[in-house]
Simulated scan of single mutants.
Amino acid sequence: MKQKGKLLLVGGLIISYFVSCEDNFDIPILSDSEIKQIITALPKNVVYPTNNLYSNEKDELGKMLYWDPILSGNKDVACVTCHHPQLGYADGLKFSQGVGGVGMGEARSGGSLTRRNAPTIINTAFTGIDISGNYNPLDAPMFWDSRASSLEDQAGGPPLSMEEMRGDAISEEHIIDIIIQRLELIPEYKTMFLQAYGDEEISEERIFKAIATYERGIIANNSRFDQYMNGDLTAMTDHEVQGMNAFIQVGCADCHSGPMFSDYKLHSIGVPDNVYPPDEGAGSYDFRTPTLRNLSITGPYMHNGIHATLEEVMQFYEDVGENDEGNDNINSNLNYSQLDPEIRDLQLDDEHFDAIIAFLKTLDDYSFDKTIPQKVPSGLPVGGNIK
């Protein structure tokens, strides 16, 4: 018989009963206050940088720029090409296929192959948030190697990348000037910059501030987990609650903590290589902890998309925690001692898989903005060559 965990107040201490479920394992149920010191709900509102405050006009300008392939060297790739709302603001591929590609998601063919999986844009507005809800949007590590520190910085990266947007016909040194020249020839963009900034000047800084403003509005902060943590105890099942407690107590939350389920730190966890030469991230195979929100629609997983399912991800972590150095699931270029202590201390077992995955799915929230503009000011195909 399935029983829900109960709490007793004894001598000022909260005592938890074990919960017994059909999974054939027991896990202690933590109190709400204990859980909220480790993982918790996202806030209702987004913080905007003091040097890039929100306005409707800037948001609309950013949306047009995000969807307009005029920002790419060959005018065939837009930001949305690899971060599309129908694919959870990712692209559903192991590695993004940029310049020269045609189609979207698994149907995309050709194009320059990047070396990393495209992370979702959803909730990047909250990157850097701590367990108390505090964060500085200008000190928010972006990209798998944390090489950018804000959405404004991040937005400026892909147009410079030969594989992602620039192509090889225009140099990195000249691409931004050419983009600005293109935009200055389009009356609608000049009007939109005037409305957003008070004059018609088009600059690199203004372009990427507008895109960042639009991206900060792509949020999903009302998942069933958020509802549960905000007091609706019917929002999650007993099975999912058990998975949440297992997630914390086997060690997943040592790195995947806070409202975004990330500590935003760089870790070496032993993900196998699937590119040559090997991608060592920020060095020594260090990659930033990703969010775990909306996993159901943002696979494949890891920095190189090597795992297609959440079950594969669970198996990888179990292998690492068991110190199974001979397993092909672990990067052969790393000794076990080189992995982060947090990953080596994992106590994950396959009996936990179903409950933890069930819990992870409570972090899904599909209420983010999915609107697609009918046209963009350049007159180019909306989103680039994605049809």
Rank of each mutant, 00 (worst) to 15 (best):
V250N: 04
R108A: 08
N51L: 02
V376M: 09
Y301F: 09
Q3H: 10
S223F: 15
S146I: 07
T362H: 05
G156R: 12
M165A: 08
D232G: 06
A196L: 04
M260A: 12
L87W: 13
A210V: 06
G299D: 01
P43G: 02
N323A: 13
S16Q: 12
K375Q: 14
D340W: 10
T289N: 11
N245K: 01
L380R: 03
N274V: 12
Y89T: 00
M244P: 01
G326D: 14
N222Y: 15
V10K: 13
F368P: 08
N74M: 09
Y336D: 09
D319E: 09
S16P: 15
C82W: 03
E164N: 13
G133K: 04
K58R: 15
L8G: 05
L233C: 00
S161W: 08
G283I: 09
L183E: 12
I178T: 08
S257E: 12
G217Y: 15
M244R: 01
Y48T: 02
M229I: 03
M229C: 11
S296C: 01
Y285D: 06
L380D: 11
N221L: 04
D153H: 15
D238G: 03
R166N: 09
L151E: 12
A90Q: 07
L160Q: 15
M192Y: 10
S55I: 00
E22C: 08
N245G: 01
R216I: 01
V320R: 07
L295Q: 02
D91V: 10
A212L: 03
G100Q: 03
I122C: 03
K209F: 08
N230I: 02
N329P: 00
G98R: 08
E200F: 09
M302Y: 04
Y189L: 09
E152T: 12
G62L: 06
K36V: 08
M165T: 14
K4H: 15
S132A: 05
G281V: 05
F18H: 04
M236P: 04
R147M: 05
P49N: 11
K58V: 03
L348I: 14
K387N: 14
L348A: 15
M165R: 13
I175G: 05
V10H: 11
G305K: 01
N221Y: 15
M192H: 06
A212H: 14
S332T: 05
V250P: 01
K6C: 11
N323F: 12
E312W: 00
Q227E: 15
Q97A: 12
D145H: 07
T289F: 11
K2S: 09
M1D: 14
Y336R: 05
P49G: 14
A107E: 07
Q315V: 04
I15H: 12
M1F: 13
Q154W: 03
T81S: 15
G283P: 12
N331L: 03
A210W: 07
G321I: 08
T114R: 10
E311H: 02
Q86Y: 11
F287A: 11
H352I: 00
G105I: 08
I357R: 00
I175L: 06
Q347I: 00
L185H: 13
S109K: 11
V382F: 01
C21E: 10
L346E: 06
P69M: 11
D130F: 07
H307W: 10
R224G: 14
I297F: 05
D145E: 10
F18G: 00
I330C: 00
L42A: 09
D177Q: 11
M1L: 11
E152Q: 13
